[in-house]
Simulated scan of single mutants.
Amino acid sequence: MVAQKLERLRTLFAEIGQALVAYSGGIDSTLVAKIAVDVLGDRALAVTANSPALLPEDLEEACIQAATLGIAHQIVQTHELANSNYASNPINRCYFCKSELHDTLRPLAQTLGFPYVVDGLNADDLLDYRPGIQAAQERGVRSPLAEVGASKLEVREMARFLGLPWWNKPAQPCLSSRFPYGEAITLEKLQRVGRAERYLRQLGYQNLRVRSENVTARIELPRDSIPDFILHTNLPELVSTFQSYGFVYVTLDLEGYRSGKLNQVLQQPAVLTNC
């Protein structure tokens, strides 16, 4: 099945002929970039948006990965926080995020002669609440992984099959996803969360989130990592460090890390109405 979907992806890119890849550095867009450059060579370009919601080390890693893949790579600046529709953090915040992204990428693609912008959306993403999908579709963005029905697990299997060392890289959505809907997002808050997550990674934890609600930090770790964290972390030092970043309260989510947890407050009928 993986080999068949890889072949379908190669055929898809051969038909596209030229492509600008919206490249975040995550495993989905990395796989897309890998296949694009393998099939299209210098007719493929990866473009990464540098925004306030992206950690500097994630941008650096995206650059390293693109160089390893051998794909031409550019960085553009986006300005989501300048849009009050985004900064106010409504439940469709991602719509305005992707609107900003693709309103930046599409003119670049047209200027450079690329007929298509492609992204890393996979088939599983279509089952989640992702208002950014609508913004991309409105702007003619193509999603090769979703078009061939590749799930997240299959993306990782394909990446591993192709020898990509990042095949098991944890998902890392933008830092704005750490805030409950309705709480305004500011540069200061994004930087505070970024510093807190960087601190935990330096302690050896990789798959994590620091959710932020006003002045409270809620640490999410995989459930099986919680006992080790409690037993072996210098908790007073951690609290002091987080408070130096601007948090007042530091808590640990005993349920453990779960992607998209903040979406559980949404009631599906209301979500569908606001799409």
Rank of each mutant, 00 (worst) to 15 (best):
R106H: 10
P107L: 06
A109Q: 09
G113S: 11
G113K: 12
Y116P: 00
Y116T: 07
V118F: 06
G120A: 11
G120M: 05
N122L: 08
N122G: 11
A123E: 15
D125I: 04
D125C: 08
D128R: 10
D128E: 15
Y129M: 10
P131L: 07
G132E: 04
G132M: 04
I133K: 12
Q134S: 12
A135M: 07
E138G: 04
E138L: 12
R139T: 07
R139N: 07
R139A: 09
R139E: 09
G140Y: 12
V141C: 09
R142K: 15
R142H: 13
S143H: 15
P144S: 11
L145W: 08
A146D: 11
V148C: 08
V148P: 03
A150I: 15
S151H: 02
K152T: 05
L153P: 00
L153H: 11
L153F: 08
E157W: 00
E157M: 13
R160M: 12
L162P: 02
L164T: 06
L164H: 07
W166F: 12
W166T: 05
W166R: 03
W167I: 00
N168I: 00
N168D: 15
K169N: 04
P170F: 07
C174E: 08
C174V: 12
S176E: 02
S177Q: 06
G182W: 12
E183N: 10
E183P: 00
K189W: 01
K189I: 05
L190V: 01
L190G: 02
V193W: 00
V193E: 01
G194L: 00
A196F: 05
R198E: 14
R198T: 14
R198H: 13
Q202Y: 01
Q202D: 15
L203N: 05
Y205M: 10
Q206N: 12
Q206P: 00
N207C: 05
L208V: 01
R209P: 01
R209L: 06
V210R: 01
R211N: 03
E213D: 13
